[in-house]
Amino acid sequence: MQTILSILLENEPGSLSRIIGLFSQRAFNIESLTVAATEDKSLSRITIATNGDHEKIEQIIKQVNKLVDVLRISELSGKAHIERELMFVKLNAQTSDAREEIVRTTDIFRGQIVDCTNQLYTVQLSGKKEKLNAFIRSVKRQSDIIEIVRSGCVAIARGATALKP
């Protein structure tokens, strides 16, 4: 089962490599990882999507928390939360039928066409992983996919809960 972890850590050189190194060193999986500085530039926030049974996740959380640079870690997937992933899909749309189909599908999925040439459309879409996968399955039927880039998921707890130093 996918687990989403949110980590607040010191924005120091090498602090990201400690997180990534820990995951490979202890044979934990990373499905996706996003990182950026927070409002407070001395801190970074990481969202990691991983998987494993209850024991594994407990061990991951403890091991991450043990890193000296880490201030907080929270498992968001077990709580009320919002998660989103951003995706760009570059599609080959040579016929007008194909182009119309792409516009329609993009519309249904509430995406936007953010770049186009005579033959290519680039679609921007955000949502949960499953929604992005569904979009890919739909457009695949009508046009060739040239390239896909996905951001990996970011997530935040619902309500008053916040990950703060």
């Binding site: 024991e55 407990e58 403890k62």
Partner: peptide, 11 residues
């Protein structure tokens, strides 16, 4: 003193 040692190998 290290929480990650607890329940790592034996629950």
């Amino acid at each position: 003193i290290d929480p990650s040692t607890i329940s790592k190998n034996i629950r």
